[in-house]
């Protein structure tokens, strides 16, 4: 079980969190024309990197904040966690 540092609450066990996928995906702005390819990349296409990955977690059984976590997908090592509005 991972031990995730919530920037709002401190170190908490994984079972308080829910996984939210790739944090680097940016939603196209509203009312903006986007190509099928751009839209499909946003909705469906994800990389599955081996190594460092910036991902979203939500502290659902805690402060309910979405946070960004930089984790190694091989070793599960967590390098950094930041609030939703910050970049890693």
């Amino acid at each position: 079980m991972l031990y995730i540092f919530c920037p709002h609450c401190g170190l908490r066990s994984q079972n308080e969190f829910s996984y939210g996928g790739d944090a680097t995906v940016k939603r196209p702005a509203l009312n903006k024309e986007v190509s099928d390819e751009q839209w499909n990349n946003f909705v469906y296409n994800r990389k599955s990197p081996r190594g460092k990955h910036v991902e979203l977690w939500q502290h659902i059984s805690g402060c309910r904040q979405w946070i960004k976590v930089q984790r190694d997908t091989v070793t599960h090592e967590i390098f950094k966690t930041v609030e939703a509005n910050k970049e890693i």
């Binding site: 829910s18 979203l56 939500q58 309910r64 904040q65 979405w66």
Partner: peptide, 17 residues
């Protein structure tokens, strides 16, 4: 109910802060 709440929080916190 729970999914919708998380969904709303996602957009408010990450997409349209």
């Amino acid at each position: 109910a729970a999914n919708v709440l998380s969904h709303l929080e996602y957009y408010l916190q990450l997409v349209w802060p």
